[in-house]
Nucleic acid binder design. Structure first.
Lengths: 327, 327
DNA sequence: CTGAAAGCGCTTACAG
DNA sequence: CTGAAAGCGCTTACAG
């Protein structure tokens, strides 16, 4: 492996000069610059990253901590982060916290030890905090400590779903919320509910019932069954919006059990746009989280010089598929 | 940040000695060792990894290249590799090749530049090769160049599926293979076919038809339809084994369209055990790939001193669920 | 605009 | 068994 010394010798300059052209420092005059570059090419010189790291105390690597890379949403985030990082010729070091606060701490510490130039964390618990970090840290999707949070605009997204259902003519609607102990769940519900209230008028009233559950399939199925079977047929909602795709898919299941046609008898909308959403029958109308934009924004944040500590809420869009229709 | 010098001063020894206790070099006598450790603890000393890397020319990081982390199988692999690496206090640097040979090369080169201590690659094309690598490289799941391959024992797994169907009493069986240009597809098919041939006797013959397709849902659905609708009812297979879960789920779909009860009228088996396999109705019987063992073996291979260049085929097991039943 | 030189924090022969 | 010292390959004030 040739070193900077070899290049310097071959180009007939000092190592300092080579280092400067490496750093794209334009103080080096054109002719020298070219000579050095030629020498580098000829020797197939590649800088030793460890040496650079020792001097600068930082490497071209972004740390990423997710609860579980096996979760498709996090995997998509990871993929896009890796692509964004690659654009700036940075790599990413991946760590799973396995939904454990202690592991999360350890992983972040390990990343920091390796002198990464920043870390993006999809946190496992809202409360966790970090004592020391002299590099940028941003929380993504779920808040980590006091670090700025980049997330989907849940409020806005839910409003959009509400609008969609309203425009289709639905006036008897049920909303299945997530666990209201979670920030996301609250925001999504508030967006939906506030919008419906705004749209409801004395001449054209909307009936809305709100139900709280978990974010998973079973919860959606249970609550869906309750809503659909316990209400007198004439007063049954014509549309159900769920706070997650998993819940919505649960509703789809129970609708099938109850021999209700979706979207003929009932419109169903989800939130997230997980992979399964476009695989189920009927394919699910949902709010797609802006994964690319989330990733891009998180990476930008790492490179931002002035550390804006402001949260960023990124708007998603409704993906209209087969599970919703005019009433 | 305290350095090794600070520790040396505090413990009243030389930096060499500190370095030696750091390296768990037992040439340092007990009392000194304790003094040094005490000093390290007191100062909260953490070694500078970049400096170490510069000297040793290697960091405690394993490089991992996958075609696409968004693929659940690769995500699971990545997760388990990360866990195995963590056991040895190594981190993992993740890169996606996006199914592109050039990108794959670039990513591996980038990883090697960063002086990782080894790289695991789930390759995108069988043919690719690497010129230089002075650290261990292993291919996982899909062969990369001339490097040893660690993969599921596809042959054995398919035999197990064949056995399962045979034991359930099926004697008219269809097999949907993957694209035979792919090594995996060939192995799976050979395992299945050879086993069935072995089990078939003059007194108790087995009828087997083999069909080639892609590994995806649609291909399974198309071929399934052909098999089930074009054969006279009395001669219709009572079981279909597919070379992938996706194909098998396709078959499930078309069986539903054709009003065939699974497993009443037809048993269906897949291969892989993707997440969806246990979510579909009926839940799919399949061969679970030994993901943990694959990951563990790959990481082991990286740490192996003597680089065995032998391939390793790891056996998986049948997961019996609801899509197969006695005929 | 360029060179000479110090130094980042370790590890590891080499003495003793 | 331990210390003194060289050196890994860079970057970056400091001169000139």
């Amino acid at each position: 492996m040739p070193t900077i010394k070899d290049v310097a010798r071959k180009a007939g300059v000092s190592v300092g000069t080579v280092s400067r052209v490496l750093a794209k420092n334009d103080t080096v005059k054109q002719p020298l610059q070219l000579r050095v570059q030629a020498a580098m090419k000829e020797l197939e010189y590649k800088p030793n990253l460890a040496a650079r790291a020792l001097r600068t105390n930082s490497i071209d690597v972004i740390g990423l901590v997710v609860p579980d890379i096996t979760n498709p949403f996090f995997a998509q985030l990871a993929k896009n982060i890796e692509m964004e990082a690659a654009k700036r010729s940075h790599s990413v070091m991946l760590a799973n916290s396995h939904d454990d606060v202690e592991t999360e701490k350890t992983q972040i510490a390990a990343l920091l030890d390796r002198a990464v130039c920043g870390v993006i964390v999809v946190s496992t618990s809202d409360g966790s905090d970090l004592d020391t970090a002299d590099v940028p840290v941003v929380s993504l999707d779920r808040r980590f400590g006091a670090y700025p949070l980049i997330a989907t605009d849940h409020y806005d997204g839910s409003q959009k779903i509400a609008d969609h259902l309203y425009e289709l003519g639905h006036r008897r609607i049920a909303y299945i919320a997530g666990p209201l102990s979670m920030d996301v769940a609250r925001r999504r519900r508030e967006g939906f509910v506030s919008r419906i209230k705004m749209l409801s008028t004395a001449e054209d009233p909307i009936e809305l019932s709100v139900h709280e559950g978990q974010f998973d399939y079973d919860s959606g199925e249970d609550i869906g069954r309750k809503i659909l079977s316990e209400t007198p047929v004439g007063k049954r909602p014509t549309a159900i919006a769920a706070a997650s795709d998993q819940q919505a898919i649960g509703v789809l299941r129970c609708a099938r059990d109850l021999k209700l046609d979706v979207p003929g008898d009932l419109s169903v909308a989800g939130f997230d746009d997980i992979t399964l959403a476009s695989l189920v029958v009927p394919r699910l109308t949902t709010l797609r989280q802006p994964i690319e934009a989330l990733a891009a924004s998180a990476v930008d944040q790492i490179f931002e010089t002035k550390t804006s500590s402001d949260d960023k809420a990124i708007a998603g869009n409704v993906v209209k598929r087969e599970s919703t229709a005019p009433r």
